[in-house]
Design a protein around this nucleic acid. Sequence first.
DNA 1: GTATGGCGTAAGCACCCGCTGACAACGTAC
DNA 2: GTACGTTGTCAGCGGGTGCTTACGCCATAC
Lengths: 189, 189
Amino acid sequence: MTEGDRTRRRDAAATRQALLAAAAELFTARGFDRTSVRDIAALAEVNQALVFRYFGSKEELLGAVLTAPGREIVATTPPEELLTRLVGEIFAGEPGGPGANLLLMALSGPQDGGAAEALDREVAAPLRAALRSLTDDPSADLRAELVCAWLLGIALVRQIRLDGPVAKTDPAEVTPVVLDAVTRLLTDG
Amino acid sequence: MTEGDRTRRRDAAATRQALLAAAAELFTARGFDRTSVRDIAALAEVNQALVFRYFGSKEELLGAVLTAPGREIVATTPPEELLTRLVGEIFAGEPGGPGANLLLMALSGPQDGGAAEALDREVAAPLRAALRSLTDDPSADLRAELVCAWLLGIALVRQIRLDGPVAKTDPAEVTPVVLDAVTRLLTDG
DNA sequence: GTATGGCGTAAGCACCCGCTGACAACGTAC
DNA sequence: GTACGTTGTCAGCGGGTGCTTACGCCATAC
């Protein structure tokens, strides 16, 4: 309607970004399958055909949404701080909203589309490697994956049980509890 | 074809059970949304209209599948053994197959259909209550839910990363590690 | 033998989905 | 000012979905 809208339209990068943001929000809230391309486009206030112009398919859009933020965290954080950083990120965002909880998407998404594999490769695998290096226990692999499993579970419960203590307790109180338990799990023989 | 088939057909209880089993298998393997009623009926070798005759809707079928086994465990196990029992169940079944991993369904299923709520009410809530009673820590609620989150994460990782150590390590080796860490998490101030 | 009621079957409705292709509007380069 | 490439619009396709409805079929009761 307004001229301001007119000037901001016809901007490929902006629409691409709007689609990414809308997709992240809806995928996180409802899961992949329960989100339609038309819903994403509507939230982004963009024609639905543009999803396919810019991302090729709904699955590739999921891939783009999934890998972006996690990869950034892993890339910009030294291994020895990765655990603390990730726990912090998990408890940083609003429980219901988007944030570190992109994991849910990978679970509800297509198993064969490579999205879950991409997330594992880009985010979880480096984390496991970093955790493994913190202990010399012979079962380091197992313990590292147990820690990852815990983080996954915490992120999910925070997302699902919005009224539970994991979601509601002050992060400053929860974080040390988790980090403590993880540390002991890793450092005990 | 054979007479044996003829006699076993036209048996309401048997077809109901066949549908339940088929639904459990497919829901667990693919998730709720990626499983169609026609797929379930085909696996059960039953006409798809019978799903609606016996269960009313696809969601109610999910509800029936979800609550049955978990509720049985909770009902038949005294609170003080519930944690050990559940950890045992999680590591008992085959990693890829059905078993204690019905949780995945609740996550990928409809959030508003009450299936996840039913699972929480029938299974998770009693578990949390049992865990809470094991500690007199002021943050007992939080710690109990953190434990639940861990179990959820472990069950999921076992399901998702079939080649990972959580899925492949001998349960007899993993179980004490988990139980140890949980106990310390609960009993530490 | 025949009526009755539960069981299984076939066909299809109405809808939503991911995705496509042709076309219009726009901004820019010349 | 005109040609051109990019961006956005629109209608619709092919197909899958949950679910319904009307209808045969069989076992039993009488």
